[in-house]
Each structure stands twice: as C-alpha cells, then as structure tokens.
Design a protein around this nucleic acid. Structure first.
Lengths: 251, 251
DNA sequence: TAAGAATAACTCAAGCTGAGAATAACCCCG
DNA sequence: CGGGGTTATTCTCAGCTTGAGTTATTCTTA
C-alpha cells in the first residue's frame, strides 16, 4: 500500500499512456412542443456514422466550461446574446477505461438549456447536426457511452425543474404561465393541472414577476389574452414545485 | 471555426502538453457529535505542509470510482466489510488550467459518507492524516482548490439528506430515531423538533424499518429504551424531509 | 425515592396540494 | 354577427403535511 505522497513522488504521468479530457454537451431545448437533444453525426472512426453528443478536447489553456460553450457554439452557430441566454452547468464525468477504443479519454459532460433554437445547420459548418426528440432516442444508437450521458442529463433536467427556476431558461425573455407550464409538461412528460400550476407559480417567491403587459392576441384556438411574466430573482424555489410521486422510481 | 470531426482528425493529444486526471475524495463522517472531513498533510511540493483531500492519479486501467475508493482505503486503512458500508458518489470535476502549478490536472471529486470511523492513522501508513471538524475548516488553509471542493461536497451532503436515505449511511446497521436525528442536526447545523422528526421519519415509506428490538439501556442521562430501526429500501424520500427555509440561500 | 431526561404519541392551527368548477375573454366557423 | 369551443385566471373545498407545544411513560442518576 502506497500513500499519496509516495505515489505522487514516484509517479510521472508522462511515463504512462497518454490520457485526454473532452467536454461533451447534452444540449436540451423545446421545439415543436417536444424536448429535444442536440446530436451530431460522426464522420471519422471510431463510431463513424453514429450520432454523438457535441464535444471535443479541452484545449491546454482552456477552462472546462469554456470548452463546453465553445463546442456548443461551434455546432449551433450560436453566438452573442442568444448564446448568453443559454444556461450551462456541469453534469458529471465519465471515464471507464474502455469507453473510447483509441485511448483513455475522460469526458466531462455539461448540460445546456436553451430556448427554442434554430436548426443547428444554420450558421454552422456541421451539416450533420440535428435536434432529436428525446422520445426518439430509443430508436437510435449513440456513440461511446453517450446514451448513458444523455439519460443522466435528462434526469438532472427533470429534477432541477423542481427546485430551481430552470424552466424559465427554456422560454423567451417574456412568457405566459401557460408557456412555463408547457415546459414542465414537456420535460416531465405528463399533463399538469392548469389551475393549480398557475397558483403555485405565482406563490413561489421570486420565480416570476409580472411585466404588466399581456399577449397581443389570445391563443390560436381561443381564450383570453394571457399576462406576461419574466424570470424572477430566485435561485432556489421554496417551496419546491414537485413532480407527482413516482412510486416506481422511489424504491 | 472547426467542427468536431475536423478537430478530432487534426488533433493528436500526444502532441499537446500532457494532462493528468486525479480522483480526490471528500470523506465525511460524524465523530464526537461533529461532522468531520478527512484531510491529509502534503509532504512534497507543491503545497508541501498544507492539508489536502486524499486522492491521487487514476491509474491507466482503473475506473474513476475505483481510484477514489482505493485512495480512501489507503488513507484510512479501511477494508473489507467496513469499507463496503461506505457510500461513494461522484461529486464534480475541477479543471481550471492553473489549479495545479505542475501541469494541467483535472480532478474528479467523489463524496464518501461513512459511519463513525477509527482514527485514520490506525492501519494506515499516513501518519499525517486526520479528521477535521468542518467547523474548523475556516481556520485552515487547504491546498489547490480543495476548499471549494469541500464546500461543494458539504452542500451536496446537506442537500442529499433531504431527499435520499443518505443519513442512514452515517449510523450503524441498527440505530434509533434519535441517532438519525443527530445526523440531520449535525449535518444541517441546527436543532430539529424531536417529536415532528420522529413522526416524519416513520411516515416516509421505506426510510426505516423496525427491528422489533430496543436499546439495552435508556440514554446516559435517563429516558426510556428506544426502539431500534434499520435502513429501509427507499432510494428516494417521498415526501422529502426538507430543511427549514433558508431565505439567504434562496436568492 | 425523587428529580431530571428522553422516547413516543397526541393535539391543533396554519399552510399547501389535488381535484373540480366557475367566470370571463377570445378565436374560428358558419 | 352569433355560437361553440378554448383558454386564462380565480375559487372552493377536502385532505394531507408541517410547526409548535403538550402529555404519558420509562429510565438513569443522585
């Protein structure tokens, strides 16, 4: 048994097979009423032709989060103000020895939440990038361990809706309570009681603040004009906006 | 702007300055009624003489979690059944370019929760390892960015007590409700209402299950014998056992 | 044996939740 | 232009959970 000091002293990392670190991004958005994840099609082996998460090597003087943002920006062609509205947070790291056949590669995954974004091809040189509805993930094989990463990201997103104002990141600057409810319904995957949701959203301090304005028109199929809100200053929701109990996930 | 495919194709990681990946462990336990974190004193530069988290390089064929367990085991001298009772989970990764003066080192931090453990020196060759009460952290300078890592770990621990049965990992196989309450009070840092806590713990499905037995004696200062419980099969607490609202942390 | 301490159970008011319904504004179609 | 259908917003109400305080009971220590 060797303690840390001795181990470090006798350890020259350069003498070992090289390792590399990538930043990979699980970018989520809501388009066409569906939760979608950004995927790119790999051109080169390994996993050539497979779909994978956008990502790449962290550069020598680059922070991990900066690498994640850069990779995301490159794939979506997004920059400036729209990019600033995208929320990034670290998800988790993946590094089983055999996850990449080339060499030992550690992936530090980030989660990105964005309001409805344009097709990734617009402005990007990645013709083979697309938003895929998460409901279609089961029919598509992903490269490396990216399926696991996406699943972890989805669970994190569902969970963060409960106790943070994350949902406001999926809508525009101004939004209606119904817009917000659609985010929750889409990410959680089931309908919510409109009246109760409305009451709850307005009662949680700092979640939303009214703008005083309303929508120009009612909904496309009728209904009155809705009041407009913008995101409040809360960083945590208290009391939280909890998902209905899911007995199967509890045990 | 380069897309991922071109970037990968033109990128030989070996041509870049070497990077390394370490697994560092924020190991928490409750000793003497206080929440304590395991630290080791560094023998070699950089930060020689400073206290730091146990950890070390992930070996070429080693999984990250395995590396974290190994480092923890080496520092505590723990093995076998006691080690199996320690709960490990990934915390987060840290990799700002300047966090280690030697080279680019990414740290993947793990959180370990353990019932009252022996002094780390027992069975370990690390004479300079110790459990430090987290309340004493402010008076001690830590190496690298380890203070930030510890703080993130503490916040994670406090938060996970709310919605997982994590607290049962800090007590022995069999415990009383009061034992469990002490865990919550120690980690959260304030007193809880004994009666309400009792009611709540018994009402959350799967948190604890009775053994039918009681303690041999009453408490050291009186009181009846307490019933004994063991951890139940819940993985999530529903409804959660929430901390009292902390207005200052909400905004 | 008396005092003090702790477990466990109970009470009660206040707040929050789920479910359903009422009201009113607004769209589209005929 | 009028009616039917749709949606935003507000209410009601019963049931559950929470915070705070109290009570009965069992044990330890002095």
């Amino acid at each position: 048994m060797v303690n840390e000091q001795e181990f470090l002293a006798g350890y020259d990392p350069r003498a070992y097979p090289a390792v590399a670190v990538t930043a990979d991004v699980v970018a989520l958005t809501i388009r066409d009423g569906e939760l979608q994840v950004l995927l790119i099609q790999r051109a080169a082996p390994p996993f050539a032709g497979f779909w994978a998460l956008p990502g790449g090597f962290v550069r020598p003087e680059e922070d991990i989060a900066a690498a994640a943002r850069r990779e995301f920006a490159e794939e979506t062609g997004l920059g400036g103000e729209p990019l600033r509205r995208v929320h990034f947070e670290q998800l988790a790291s993946y590094g089983t020895p055999e996850r990449d056949p080339r060499m030992r590669i550690f992936s530090i995954a980030y989660l990105a939440f964005a309001p409805d974004l344009p097709e990734p091809s617009a402005g990007s040189d990645a013709g083979d990038a697309q938003w895929l509805p998460v409901t279609a993930l089961s029919t598509r094989e992903l490269a490396f361990d990216h399926r696991k990463i996406v699943e972890d990201g989805l669970e994190r997103a569902r969970s963060k809706l409960e106790y943070t104002p994350l949902a406001t990141r999926f809508v525009g600057e101004e939004f209606t309570i119904a817009d917000l409810r659609e985010v929750y319904e889409t990410v959680w995957g089931h309908a919510l009681h409109a009246g109760n949701f409305h009451r709850k959203v307005l009662s949680v301090p700092g979640l939303v603040e009214g703008t005083g304005a309303t929508t120009e028109h009612g909904g496309p199929r009728g209904g009155p004009r809705a009041r407009l809100y913008r995101a409040g200053d809360a960083r945590l929701l208290h009391p939280a906006l909890l998902r209905p109990a899911r007995e199967e996930t509890v045990r």
